[in-house]
Design a protein around this nucleic acid. Sequence first.
DNA 1: CGGTATCCGTCACGATACTG
DNA 2: CAGTATCGTGACGGATACCG
Lengths: 134, 134
Amino acid sequence: MTTMSAGERRERDRERYNANLAGCPGHELLAALSDKWVTLVLSALADGPLRYGDLSRIVAGASQKMLTQTLRKLERDGLLTRTVTPAVPVRVDYALTGLGESLLPVQRAIKTWAETHIEQVHGARAAYDARPAP
Amino acid sequence: MTTMSAGERRERDRERYNANLAGCPGHELLAALSDKWVTLVLSALADGPLRYGDLSRIVAGASQKMLTQTLRKLERDGLLTRTVTPAVPVRVDYALTGLGESLLPVQRAIKTWAETHIEQVHGARAAYDARPAP
DNA sequence: CGGTATCCGTCACGATACTG
DNA sequence: CAGTATCGTGACGGATACCG
């Protein structure tokens, strides 16, 4: 069968396209960074290692589940290390790796742009929202 | 009433925290950029204005709904302009604003980091996944 | 051509309870 | 202290159909 419905074709195209996206480094990174808590955890650890409890206090908005999930993901990606000290009670420290630290300048670049231009964005939004209704 | 259940307190804390987050320029930007299609649209327009149809072909993975939604958001934020030329059929052009263009270097920074370090990340993942099961 | 309107599945997230 | 297990829900994205 060489024939194929338009729907099938579109679906196949989308799959291909998404496969490309998944393989694109830029997108992978962006997907990782955009995670609500990743940035917060990373910058919390920028000043030095922290224990789980400390992190959960600093990143106060995160649920236990989300915090753990985020930490595991970052550990898997080699951005931080997880060190368990067997004692009673247990002690777990998290610290940035070199790779993780190398990400901090990128974060700063983003932050800098944001602080420099956010006013303009807010202004544009206000203007847009104030337009006469269609 | 000065008393409050632990649950209520946590909930209130989370709300406050999220309110802070919403006001944080860095997070606002990150939330905007992380949108699956924003980066693609922006870089598609980096070389010059495009019509809606062109965009939908270049950003092939996006559904019509998502593409329109993304374009509207970017227009609202002042990152691009939408120009309607009343004719038959209608013609709509999208172009980056100065503000939108100023975002391109940031995108490049992200892309550069990704291309430089993604191998390490993949290596770390492989190592993590290959560890002996607990 | 360039959209809007509507329905619908899924899945990420949070709350809660329990464990080594 | 530092998690794991389980369940409920709501926002988001996709498919489809229709409009100026």
